[in-house]
Structure formats: C-alpha cells, structure tokens
Write a protein that binds this DNA or RNA. Structure first.
Lengths: 189, 189
DNA sequence: GTCTATATAGTGATAGAC
DNA sequence: GTCTATCACTATATAGAC
C-alpha cells in the first residue's frame, strides 16, 4: 500500500508515542523530536496528524477483518474457530503492539475514516457472536450469557498488548500455549 | 472527603467527557459547556484540570485498595477470593463507570499523584498474583502461567465499564450471575 | 458564583529559503 | 528533505467587575 520508507518511519515513531500517551497528548513536535527533525519537516511526508492515526488504525483493523474471514471456515468446530481467533490476536499483537494500542484507545479520534472503522469493528464482533451462538446451539459451549462470553474474550484479547510489552511480561510462546486453555477452560480445576 | 456539591457536579460532568474522549482531548471549555457556564467560572470550585483528574482516579483506586484488603480474609478458599474480586470490580463499575474509564485510560496523565497511583496499582496486582499462586500450590487452580491467568482476569474486569455502559449492554444482574463462572470455569463445556 | 477580558504558552499547519 | 519564520487558533489559568 505504501512503501515510502521515511513515511513508514514517521508512522512507526508516532505509534510508539500514541501508545504511551494517547493521540491527543502527542504533538507534531513530539513526533518530530523522536526523529530528530523539526515539526515542519514532517509535512513533506505526511499530510496531517490525522492521516498518521488513520494509517495506523485502518491497516491493523483490516488485518483483523481479513483474519476473521479465514476463521469462518465451515469445516472447523467452534473450539477450533475460537482457537484461531485467539491466535489471530496474538499474532497481530506480537507483530505490532503499538498499532494495537492505537486501535484500542484512539479509534474515537478518527475523523474521515471513523464510520469505516466502526463498521469493521461491529462486523468483527457480530461474526464472533455468531460463532459463539452456533457453539451453544451445537452444545459445544456452555449456555451462559453470550455477551459476557464475547466481552470476556475480547477484553482479554484486545488488551494483550499491555502485558506483552511490559518488562517481565508474557512471551509469544507462553501466550500461544496457555492463553487458549485459560480463556476456553477457565482457571479453576 | 469533599462535600462541595458544585465541585462534585463539575467532577461528574468532567468524568463523563473524559470517558468518551480521554483527558487530553477534553478542554476546560468542554467541561464548562456541559454545565452551561464559562470556563473561567470553573476555577471558583477547582484549582486545575489536573485536580479534577486526580480526584476522579485516586478515589476509585483507593476503593479498589481497600476492597482488596477484605478479599484477603484468610478463611476463604481461592475460589471464594476470586469470586470476591470479581464482585468488587462489578460493584465499583456499576457505581461509577466513568471513573473506571479514567482509571484505565488516563492514569498516565496524572502528575503529582502518579507515584501514589502506580504504587496502589502494583500492590493490587501483587496481591492478586499471590492469591493465584497460593491457589496453584493448594491444587485449587490449574498450574498454568500465572501472568496469563492474572492478565486475562484483570483485562476483562478492568474493561467491564465498556460493555456495561453500551446500549444493549450487559446488566449488573447477569454480570453477577455469569461473569464468575465464565472467568473461572471457561467457555467450552 | 459567574462573567468579560486577558496573559502566556502551545497547537497543527504553511511559505519559502537552502 | 530539512530548515526558519510565522500564521491562525486554541489551551489552561488569572484578574477584577458585577
């Protein structure tokens, strides 16, 4: 989509700052400082602060959208589908935890791209919900409140980036090993 | 602690705005507008924007700290302690979802009170961790990665406010009924 | 307790030299 | 591609009238 290397660098540095302090608290001067240039120079590569945010969020949101398409392979059991969703979140978080943070915390500051983003997020949740619903109908998963199961899984998966990037945080390997069983089978023996 | 009714009103309106757009994106004019007064008038009741944020966050953080003390009753089993932690989060979220949002999203914008807050949060997590560790040692809970169990539960509990305040969101009653079993026993039958 | 007016500093973004 | 200089606007906060 975009192979301008300087632009990529700007977006990458900006994402790190957005993750730490949030979009609104980061200034164009902060972003420029992190690249050792002046704020005005940024505008040779990007059009606006808003464009930086939209680029970060929309790219990873689209990765989730296409990931969900593959999850919905009809041959899979509910448990396999849920396993694949967990892996999708782990993979995208490990690949770009800064973008995950922006996706989670700064999506409401999107302007032009906001409706497009909100539609993708709603569709993602609706597909997730349908998988859980089918799982209950087929007796694979417990018949408890679907919304609670949905938000419980999604809350954990969406904030993975916090724990993955912590010092002494969890590794990608232990996540792949222990997160699915923790979410699917619970904590109590 | 503070029974000035106008000050409480300002803090309450500010919390609603902070929840929606975040501390940095909300201006003193926005807060004043929501009270139908001018920004300058706010300073007759509060000293600074920062004081508003600190008041919101520290009050609910202290509620979690004292809640955790009661959870640690030695007579309780691990499962009972975890049940009590879940109830604590549900109760405080239902009581003040706006403050929960600020606690989660805007704590890094605290200035003078930041070290005090961080200490409380670290102690809370450490106490939670100790409960899980003891549960594993006593064979009550599965011997998987403690950090993953900890962050899985905490992520869900800390973002409860999102789902509780959604239209068609989950009610306090279904949360108390189905959230503990979902977190402790998992989703798959 | 709220207002108008204002101080002071910072914001995103542009123009044009090098 | 980066710079200096600057614009137009907005931020938090204060002073003092009513």
């Amino acid at each position: 989509m975009n192979n301008n290397p300087r632009k990529k660098e700007i977006i990458s540095k900006a994402a790190r700052l957005f993750k730490k302090r949030g979009y609104s608290a980061v200034t164009m001067r902060d972003i420029a400082d992190s690249l050792n240039i002046k704020a005005a120079s940024l505008y040779n590569h990007i059009n606006s602060k808003q464009e930086i945010l939209a680029t970060i969020i929309i790219e990873i949101a689209e990765a989730f959208t296409s990931g969900m398409v593959e999850v919905q392979t009809p041959q899979l059991t509910t448990q396999e589908k849920l396993q694949k969703i967990i892996e999708l979140h782990i993979d995208l978080t490990v690949k770009n935890p800064e973008a995950m943070a922006c996706l989670n915390n700064d999506w409401m500051h999107l302007e032009e791209k906001l409706p497009y983003f909100v539609k993708m997020r709603e569709d993602y949740e609706e597909n997730f919900r349908a998988i859980l619903k089918k799982g209950i109908a087929q007796g694979e998963i417990g018949s408890r409140d679907i919304e609670i199961m949905l938000f419980s899984m999604l809350s954990t998966l969406r904030t993975l980036y916090i724990w993955y990037t912590k010092k002494d945080g969890v590794s990608a390997v232990s996540l792949k090993n222990d997160l699915p069983v923790t979410l699917l089978k619970g904590i109590i023996k």
